[in-house]
Design a protein around this nucleic acid. Structure first.
Lengths: 69, 69
DNA sequence: CATAATAGTGCAATAAAAAGCACTTTTAAC
DNA sequence: GTTAAAAGTGCTTTTTATTGCACTATTATG
């Protein structure tokens, strides 16, 4: 997953759950400005930020070995 | 995957490929100090750093919805 | 044990993420 | 077209990630 896809994953999940940026910011403990920046593709979030968002949305970040096809 | 597991994944992969921290730092473009800090569990790396390491090791970072069991 | 390679740490400078605030733009509902 | 909610942006401060350098600690290997 490229950085854009990670963003999309969060955004899509948030939309599906009918959660606004403001709600997610509150729920996750991530600053609203940080979330806005992230979702608009301008950020380079830290692992901690990603984990906080993931937790709030019931998502998980994993590192896997790429299969060679 | 918790933050510790992400670290382990990288470290294990690196060891399996018989790559030193120094080599991985060079290969990935991540500073040696940053890698050392990360692997010793003291960092909060940015997404960019994680991606660089992943790329160099043939690994991929993904965001998935947690299945509820 | 020596010693060479690899990994970990303290310190410091620089760059950039996180955050709040106020504002603008877009979207959706009427 | 109005209005309200949601999303995006500019500016700023504070915090912290990244990095290099020099050093110490740990781990093989002879």
């Amino acid at each position: 997953m490229h950085s854009k896809d990670l963003i999309e994953a969060i955004k899509t999940r948030r939309d599906n759950l009918d959660v606004t940026q403001e709600m997610l910011a509150d729920l996750s403990g991530v600053g609203l400005r940080t979330l806005k920046q992230f979702e608009s593709g301008k950020g380079n979030p830290t692992l901690e930020t990603l984990q906080k968002l993931g937790n709030a949305l019931g998502m998980e970040l994993t590192f896997t070995i790429k299969e060679l096809k």
